[in-house]
Every structure is written in structure tokens, then in C-alpha cells.
Design a protein around this nucleic acid. Sequence first.
DNA 1: TTAAATTTTCAGTAATTTTTGAAACATTAA
DNA 2: TTAATGTTTCAAAAATTACTGAAAATTTAA
Lengths: 165, 165
Amino acid sequence: MEYIEAKNKFIQAWGTLGTSWGINKTMAQIHALLLLSTESITTEDIMQELQISRGNANMNIRALIDWGIIEKEHKLGERKEFFKADKDIWELARQVSKERRRREIEPILRVLDQVQDVSGTNEEEIKEFKQVTGDLMGFSLKIDGMLDKFTKSDSNWFYKMLLKL
Amino acid sequence: MEYIEAKNKFIQAWGTLGTSWGINKTMAQIHALLLLSTESITTEDIMQELQISRGNANMNIRALIDWGIIEKEHKLGERKEFFKADKDIWELARQVSKERRRREIEPILRVLDQVQDVSGTNEEEIKEFKQVTGDLMGFSLKIDGMLDKFTKSDSNWFYKMLLKL
DNA sequence: TTAAATTTTCAGTAATTTTTGAAACATTAA
DNA sequence: TTAATGTTTCAAAAATTACTGAAAATTTAA
């Protein structure tokens, strides 16, 4: 398969995958493009490669920076900003885990916690409510702990863990 | 906190969480409602509780059944269909992992595989392309293997794994 | 300073996804 | 059968989300 075809295929697939995990398509595509770039590139390059507007490019680049998975670079004698992605996949996974944990697991844990002191007249439904939300919280806490360990470890730790299984 | 308030809060939070993980809000809310129900309920009940249309209820109930996380029940002497959720959170996690693996990880693995035999004139970009997509595939395969093991094990295995860490 | 280059913002538009509601379809009871 | 009850489908509407493009803001060079 020719490079250009493979590249487009990968960018497209990465966009689609992102979409089904709640990440907007353009954001994932910009990330894919940067993963493949041998050197850091400008907003103009991204606009041109993905055929998107300046506003769209700018917003999604910023979102990627907020997620901590790409970064700005300044080149000597250049006024433009350049961007590059971290090519270390383990680092990427760690960063994504960290952010999703913070943005999504923590809020649901907070709600599950708040909701634990429920009261009411129907014994059975109260019991069921506490049981289900309690189980959910227990499970979430376990996942949360695992992710915490994961985000603080190196790829080696994860690799060993997989072996132990 | 009063039961009705806690219930609504939980349903709302579950819907929001679903949304940020690419699952539609109503689908997640129906699931939350069923998790809290002490007995199986009808489409009418769901429509009434969540204030949604029949079509919407029907479509999302079907989606939940497709995901394998709720099921139909027929009651003796009743023509209506009743629905109930599996209350076992481990089972839920296992089922969701299984489905997402099939729907999302497998497709991306297929693309990464296809794209491996890339060719072109620019040595550096080909090398980088192979490196990045190869790493990504390696990582995805590891996650895939872990999920496979997870979906085929019982909660006890997972619990032990967490202890070993 | 002023001007040129670059980045950011955001109102309006477009695209996508979700929801409705009514009609078609299916099943069971009489 | 026919009628009543219940389920599914799907075109249209609504809601949400993403994108554009131009103007405003910011930064740097002269």
C-alpha cells in the first residue's frame, strides 16, 4: 500500500475510533497526523492536510494540549508555533487514563458518594438503591486505584503486570 | 437525601457519564433506571419515568439488549414485555468490555494490520509510520489480550489481580 | 511607535445525532 | 375471522455538536 493511502487510512480510522469513545473526530485526526509527522508542524500544515478551517484547527489543537498529549514548540527565527505529539504510546495511554480519570471517574464517584445517605419509606427500594450504587462505587474505586497506579508507573510495570495477569 | 432525589441524581449522572463515553444519554438512563428497579418493568413504565417517546424507549431498550446488559422477561398471563438489568456490576463490566472490544478494538487492529505493508520513497516517513503504527498495534494487542482474559474470568480473578498489581 | 504576522474568539451555519409520533406490523384474545 | 393490545419502524423535527470564516486580539519585527 502506498504511503499516502496508508496515512489517510490511519488518520481516518483514528478519527472514527475517537468518535466512538467520545472524542471529536477532528481532534483525533490532528493527533494521528502529528503521530505520523517526522517533524513538528504548524497550524497551516494541519489545516492544509486535513482540509479544515483555522478556527477548527486552533480549537482542537488547544484541546489536545489540554489533554497533555501534544505540545507547542518554538523554532529559532520562526514566529509560527509548531506542534508535535509524544510518540511514546505508553505515555499517551498514561496521559489519556489520567485525564479521563480526572474528568469522568472522579465526578461519578462524587455523585455515588453523595447519594449514599438516601432515605425513604420503601425499605426494599432503599435497600436496592444502596446495594447497586454501593457496588458501583466499590467497582469504580477499584478501577480508579488501578488507573492511579498505572498513571504513576512506567511501561515496564504494566508489562510485568500483564505477564503476572 | 430523599429517595426520589437520589434516584434522579443517579439517573442523570449515569446519562452524563454514558455521553462522555460515546453512549447515548437515554440508553444510559434506561439502564440506570433498570438497575434501581426492584422488579422488571415495561416500556410504558420507562416512557413515563424518563418522559420519553415510545420510539425512543423502544430503540434504546433494543440497543441495551444488543449490548447484552438488560433482558426481556415474559410474565405469566401478561401480554406486555418486561425488562430487567443484571445487577451484578462485574458482569456488567465484563459484558461492556466484551462488546467494546468486538466493536472498537478489533476494527482498529484490522486497520493497523492492513497498513503495516506500507511502501514509499521517503525512507524516514515510512520508518516513522511503521514505528508508530507498530507500537500502537503492540499496545492494542496487549490491551486486547487483557480484556479477553478479563471477559473470560470471574470477579474473583480480577480481585486477585488487583491485589497482585 | 506602526505594521505585519500570527493566534484566538465567536456568531452564524452546517452536519450529525437523537427524539418524536404516527402508521405499519405482529400477536393474542374473543 | 375481527378487534384489541402491544411492538417496531421510520420520516420529519428537534436538539446537540462541530465547523467556518472573518473580525478582534495578541505578539513580534522594523
